[in-house]
Amino acid sequence: MHYPEENPWTIISEKQVYDNQWIGLTEYQVINPSGNLGIYGKVRFKNTAIGVLPLDDDMNTYLVGQYRFPLSQYSWEIPEGGGPLGTDPLDSAKRELLEETGLKADNWTELQRMHLSNSVSDELCIIYLARVLRQFDAEPEDTEQLIIKKIPFDEAYRMVTDGRITDAITVAAVLRLKLMIVENEL
């Protein structure tokens, strides 16, 4: 069976349910693809999610550890954050790397773009590889209590494959870089 790629949803009405400086939540009254009435909630993000995988000349990377309030658990991740929509995401990546690790990089490569939860949100994530690293002082935000850990990239890969790292951005970045290494694309 062939389905067209056009939008099969019809929006009857919409109302904003919640809004703050980071997200907005809209509830839609819809006619779904099968022709039935329904509702759909959409979280609209006001920032582009940014991930940075720093990699030094000795194939070490830097992970950031922090307690994640929504999960009620501690998480090891690559440096991450967000940048306002309409701004250069690379500038946001450079800022996040410096804020969280104190690192600056001379070489930047976009690894991938991905949607983080396309069933309920429009959040776009851009992940960068940062190379040729130089150390400065970290400048964390007041909402961040961070621990920085420098480890061999292969250890980060093991942490992803054995489930110690569950953050989606970090998992995607590490697996993408591992594939680049295996295919001699680094």
Rank of each mutant, 00 (worst) to 15 (best):
G163C: 07
E141T: 14
V160W: 06
R164Y: 05
A130N: 09
F153C: 00
I147L: 06
K150R: 12
P140N: 07
P152R: 05
P140D: 06
N118H: 12
E155D: 10
L133Q: 11
Y128T: 08
D162N: 12
T109D: 11
D122V: 13
M159D: 04
A130V: 12
T109A: 11
D142P: 02
G102P: 01
M159I: 06
I148S: 04
E123G: 08
V132I: 15
R164A: 09
T109L: 10
M114G: 12
L133E: 10
E99V: 08
L124V: 15
R158T: 15
S92H: 04
C125A: 15
D106L: 11
A93W: 04
E141H: 14
S117V: 14
S121G: 14
I148M: 12
C125T: 09
I165K: 01
S92M: 10
R131Y: 02
M159S: 07
K149V: 04
L129C: 06
N107R: 15
P140L: 14
D162S: 08
A105L: 00
H115Q: 15
D142N: 09
G163Y: 11
I126C: 03
D167I: 04
Y128G: 09
V160T: 00
L116F: 04
T161R: 11
L124R: 08
L97A: 10
E144C: 12
L111W: 00
F136W: 11
L146I: 02
N107V: 15
Q112T: 15
D162P: 07
L90I: 03
D137A: 14
M114V: 14
Q135R: 14
Y157N: 03
C125L: 13
R131H: 09
R158Q: 15
I126R: 03
A105I: 08
E100F: 07
E141L: 15
L111E: 01
K150H: 06
A105Y: 05
A105Q: 00
G102N: 05
T143K: 04
Y128M: 02
M159T: 01
R158F: 07
D106S: 13
E139F: 08
L111Y: 05
E123F: 04
R95D: 09
D167L: 08
S92A: 14
E110V: 12
E99D: 05
M114H: 10
D106W: 13
C125V: 05
D91Q: 10
A138L: 11
L124P: 00
E100W: 01
R164F: 04
F136C: 01
D106E: 14
Q145W: 05
N107E: 15
T101L: 01
D154T: 15
I151Y: 06
E99L: 02
L103T: 08
R131Q: 13
D122H: 01
R134V: 09
E110R: 12
D167T: 02
E123C: 03
T166W: 00
E96T: 14
R158E: 15
L103P: 00
L116C: 02
V132N: 13
N118T: 12
E155K: 10
I127E: 09
K150W: 02
W108Q: 00
F153W: 05
E110F: 06
R113H: 03
H115Y: 11
N118S: 10
L98F: 01
E123A: 06
N107W: 14
I147H: 02
E155N: 08
S92W: 03
A156D: 01
E123K: 06
